[in-house]
């Protein structure tokens, strides 16, 4: 009986890596936005920029996900 362990292994690794990375990015974005409201001046701008970079990365991941569904 043949079980594709390497495929299972890569599903495990890829899922773990991407989930953790995405959730971390999004958390940083959300935290950055909430920081923007409390901080002032330069640090507020930096926090907001960082947040938007994080959200853009997440949006890119979602777009990639949709393309995976469509091109299957």
């Amino acid at each position: 009986m043949h079980i594709d362990w390497s495929a299972l292994g890569s599903v495990f690794g890829v899922s773990l890596g991407i989930s953790v990375a995405l959730v971390a990015l999004f958390t940083l974005g959300v935290a950055g936005l909430s920081k923007k409201e409390t901080a002032q001046g330069g640090s507020a701008v930096a926090a907001a920029t960082g947040a938007y970079v994080c959200f853009a990365a997440c949006a890119a991941a979602v777009a990639y996900g949709i393309s995976l569904i469509i091109t299957k």
Binding site: F12, S19, A24, F26, T27, V30
Partner: peptide, 26 residues
């Protein structure tokens, strides 16, 4: 496992962030 690690990390990263402000984002 993926969700557990992601949740752990997320709580660690957000630290003391105001939950009311972050709720909408999540």
């Amino acid at each position: 496992l993926a969700a557990m690690v992601a949740t752990r990390l997320s709580y660690k990263l957000s630290g003391g962030a105001d939950t009311k402000a972050t709720k909408k984002g999540y």
